[in-house]
């Protein structure tokens, strides 16, 4: 098995900022809106390069989402930027009516998702956003795992027809996806082939899953590790193909169990290929203040939790 090299450390939101600048250069229809979090989302480079295509909306997220729909009517490709909590729960009806139901080309870009927002605590640590967004008909839902993938996804979604929810985070995390790796919306990314268990991971927990894979190998368990960056539409073919080989599944995500990646995988497998499954996710709890790594430990979203889940689920195979 291969061990992934750490190419560096960076926050995924910086990948978004670089991607936004790059796609802004490529496509003159790309416009960006910020709700008073321009620096936090690293949108300043875009704002400086394209002041006429950057709209500072202030602390008014509802207005921002509906305005983005209006800009899309005018032929623009609007990228909205704020924290994940204010990108979803706060503006659900605006997204539902003006963007999803109206079929608008709005790219909802959401930073500071999940527990790893850290010290700001549960008011800002949304763990329900994937579920909220994936329930909307026609919404594409993406959760990226490192700087390079976030940058590539930010560029790729501009040419995708329809609304997209792009979720990323705050802390500096390892970079391990090659900078030239193409981002294909809706396609699972095989990171490591294995035979005994499949780990489907998204977002910050992809690196944790790779670390778990190393430990599992030492224990004699061959884990197949697949990055599901696009939770909707789910790459069902990829999921079923892998599970037909390994016969059991662990899912790993920084989100509530309800509504998250695990829930999507479980639904797919229940319908098409019933399989033992364990889920690494927050289970019906709010988060709290703390350092990102401390929170991942306390809420059981860490490498040892993935290892233990894999051992459990291998034991459940018939």
């Amino acid at each position: 098995m291969r061990e992934y090299q750490i190419l560096g450390h960076a926050d995924t939101r910086s990948g978004f900022g670089e991607g936004l600048l790059a796609v802004g250069k490529q496509n003159p229809d790309v416009v960006a809106l910020s709700a008073d979090l321009t620096d936090s989302l690293k949108m300043d480079a875009f704002a400086k390069a394209f002041p006429d295509r950057f709209i500072q909306v202030g602390i008014a997220e509802a207005n921002m989402m509906s305005m983005a729909a209006g800009l899309a009517i005018g032929g623009k490709i609007p990228y909205t930027g704020t924290f994940a909590n204010f990108s979803t729960g706060r503006v659900y009806d605006q997204i539902r009516q003006c963007i999803a139901y109206s079929g608008k080309q709005v790219k909802i870009c959401a930073s500071h998702a999940g527990l790893t927002l850290g010290e700001d605590g549960a008011t800002h640590q949304i763990l329900e956003d994937i579920g909220l967004m994936k329930m909307l008909p026609g919404m594409t839902v993406i959760n990226t795992c490192d700087f390079n993938q976030t940058k590539a996804a930010t560029i790729a979604i501009a040419s995708h027809a329809g609304p997209v929810y792009l979720r990323f985070g705050r802390p500096k995390v390892p970079i391990f996806i090659a900078p030239d790796m193409p981002f294909v919306i809706g396609k699972g990314l095989m990171l490591q082939e294995g035979n005994d268990v499949t780990i489907f991971a998204t977002g910050h927990l992809v690196w944790k899953a790779l670390q778990a894979g190393v430990i599992l190998a030492q224990k004699g368990i061959s884990a197949e590790i697949i990055n599901i960056h696009t939770i909707k539409p789910l790459d069902e073919e990829c999921v079923i193909r892998s599970v037909q080989k390994t016969g059991c599944v662990v899912t790993a995500e920084e989100h509530q169990r309800n509504g998250g990646l695990g829930d999507s995988i479980a639904q797919c497998l229940a319908l098409h290929h019933p399989t033992p499954i364990e889920m690494i996710a927050v289970n019906d709890q709010f988060g709290e203040s703390g350092k990102p790594e401390e929170l991942l430990v306390k809420y059981h979203l860490n490498t040892p939790d993935i290892v233990a889940a894999a051992e459990r689920v291998v034991g459940r195979k018939i």
Binding site: I55, A62, N63, M64, M65, S66, M67, A68, A69, G70, L71, A72, I73, G74, G75, K76, P78, D93, Q94, Q97, C98
Partner: peptide, 14 residues
């Protein structure tokens, strides 16, 4: 409550 915001977005695009 949403139409005025949409109209503003369309006006900006104009």
């Amino acid at each position: 409550g949403m139409g005025l915001s949409v109209a503003i977005g369309a006006a900006l695009s104009k």
